[in-house]
Amino acid sequence: MTAPILSCREVTHYYGSQMACRNVSLDLYPGEVLGIVGESGSGKTTLLKILAGQIEPTDGTVSFAKKGGALTGLHEMSEAEIRLLARTDWAFVHQHPRDGLRMNVSAGANIGERLMAIGDRHYGNIRASAIHWLEQVEIDAERVDDLPRTFSGGMQQRLQIARNLVTSPRLVFMDEPTGGLDVSVQARLLDLIRGLVRTLGLSVLVVTHDLAVARLLSSRLIVMQGGNVVESGLTDQVLEDPQAPYSQLLVSSILQV
C-alpha cells in the first residue's frame, strides 16, 4: 500500500476553554477524496484549517509528504516552507469566492498570481495558462481581463478553483465548495470538480455539511459531531449502513427529504 500524502495523529484543539476537536487521527492517500461531514459547530472547519497549516493545534501532529519525500510534521517546517507549500503544492478553495480571490484584479491576474509567485516571468505564457484554466473550468476565454465582481457566484467559484489548480497542486483543501450556490449551479460545479479530480489525480480533503456533496465527490467519509470523529469508512458503506447513532440521524434526515 502506498504511503499517505497527509496524515494527522490525535489532533485536539481548543479555542480558549472551548473544545473544537478532539483526538482526531486520519490519513489521506494520493489520488483519494476524503469527505469530512458534520453539522456546523462539529469542528470540521477547524480540523481543515489545522490540516492546511493555518491553525496550530493545541495538541497532536499533522504531517505532509512533499514531492518524493517522506511524511514531515508541519511543526518541523518553518513558516516560510508552509507558506511556500500553500501557494504551490497545496490549494485551498474557500466557501466564499471573495475569501479566495483578489476582487480588484482581472480573472487572468487571479489565475496568474500563483505562477508569478513561483517565478514565472513571461507575460504571454502566464496569460496562455490563465486562458487554458478558464477553459478548464468552463469560463469563456473572452472574460480573461474582466474583474471577478462582474462574474456570477458560480463563475467566481470556478475561477477560484482555476486560480488554485494552476500550479498543479497535489493536495486540495475544500471548505463547503458549493455552500453559497443555487442547487442547479451546485450540480454543474460538482460535476466539474469531479471531472478535474479524476483527470488530474488530485488528493482532496472536502469539508461539507451536505451529504449529497460528500456522496458525489468522496470515496471515504469521516463523520464529526461535537469535535469528535464518530464514524469513518468508505462513503457508500457509511451512507448505506451507518453505525453511529449520529450518522444514522444525519443520513435519515437527508434521505427523507
Binding site: E79, A80, R83, L84, R87, R102, V105, S106, G108, A109, G112, E113, R114, M116, A117, I118, R121, Y123, I126, R127, V144, D145
Partner: peptide, 22 residues
Amino acid sequence: RKMHALSEYGLMHVKLYEDIAR
C-alpha cells in the same frame, strides 16, 4: 515585512500583469 523576509513578491508582478492586460 513577512513578504520581504520570505521573498513573496508575486503580488508585485500581479500589478505589472494587470497594467499590460489593461
